[in-house]
Amino acid sequence: MMRRFLEVDVFSSGRLTGNPLAVVADADELTTEQMQRLAAWTNFSETTYLLAPTDPEADYRIRIFTPRQEYPFAGHPTIGSARAWLELGGVPRTPGRLIQECAAGLVPVRLEEDRLAFATPPRTRTGPLPDDDVARMATMLAIDPAEIVAHAWGVNGPEWRLVQLRDADAVRALRPSADRAGLHIGVVGLEAPGGECAYEVRGFGPTYEDPVTGSLNGALAQWLRERGEVPESYVVAQGSQIGRRGRVHVHDDGEHVWIGGDTIVVVDGRLAM
């Protein structure tokens, strides 16, 4: 069967500057095994599948796969899948507002002009990291533990361990070890006031650096807002050390922390599967 297959550049600041996402349409008849095999073949950080919703409130449903496993929720797949669904002719029940169904539940997505944003789901684990985890993070990041200003769990799908350094320059200077023992580490450093971006982020998976990460920035925004480190609205930079120029737009409306970004459909084709 031929299915539409899109590749979307997510959290971009121009073509080929963000995080790519593969999206497969009309995927209801695919098995979990087929979905996982294709995600391993594309080798993107995530591949998503558009499905008919099972919840009457949802506009559409997605499943999210990394090359190795399925996630209940992830950020850049949420925004990229919403863009693909709209590109394929999807019409939301409420103009300007989409409801996405995924394994984590219903996720509101809003469309403001041409920018999409999702409401960050609650973290399922918070609080400071254990001392032995902090020591491991320092070793993996090749820094002295004293350079870590603050740390916390930020689990909202991926199991992010959040680490704050003294400033954005310290984040950009990181040269972590290649093997991170299967962990997901999010590192943040604040920029000096007055610039385009409030802070610099780097997201390290077990063996790779993620170009731009929605789930990580959602957890970081909730954590930094709780501590009064950032304003209600700001922009985040990510990907600068791996040749990207990702931009994440954050807004806290008092009820939800919205994680938004620009998206570009780069590939629109057909998948024989």
Score class of each variant (00 low, 15 high):
T139I: 02
E147M: 14
G239Q: 04
E159H: 14
L86F: 09
T126R: 04
R68S: 14
I64H: 15
F44M: 04
A104I: 13
T120C: 11
R68M: 14
T124C: 02
E29I: 00
P53Y: 10
G195S: 05
L98R: 01
T42R: 07
A84Q: 02
G186C: 02
D262V: 08
G75D: 07
E229G: 06
D253M: 10
W160G: 03
L224F: 11
G243T: 00
G218S: 05
I99Y: 10
M140P: 09
G189M: 12
E232L: 08
M1E: 10
T17Q: 09
A173M: 01
G260A: 02
G261N: 03
A117H: 02
H251W: 14
T42A: 07
V8A: 03
D262I: 07
D144A: 15
E46C: 08
T17S: 14
D28N: 11
L106Q: 06
R180W: 08
A173Q: 12
A170I: 13
G261P: 06
W223M: 09
S13G: 12
R180T: 04
A74S: 03
D268A: 12
T78A: 10
R227I: 06
R37F: 00
V134T: 13
T207I: 15
A138R: 09
L86G: 04
G243I: 05
T32C: 08
A52F: 01
M273Q: 07
R4H: 13
A22Y: 08
R125F: 10
T31P: 04
R136Y: 05
A272F: 07
T47M: 13
R161V: 05
G80W: 12
P20R: 01
Y49T: 01
M2W: 12
H151G: 15
P67R: 08
G261L: 01
V201N: 11
P121W: 05
M273T: 05
S81A: 13
R115F: 02
V107N: 04
Q222N: 12
G89L: 03
V201S: 07
V230S: 09
V188P: 05
V266W: 02
E33F: 00
P121I: 05
G18V: 06
L50T: 13
G105K: 07
V235P: 00
F44H: 13
L116F: 09
R225K: 04
P67M: 12
S81W: 11
H256A: 04
A181D: 11
T263R: 11
E87T: 15
A198N: 10
A117I: 06
A178Q: 15
G260V: 04
A168S: 13
R136W: 11
D133L: 07
V188T: 05
G260L: 00
L174N: 11
D144V: 12
N217H: 07
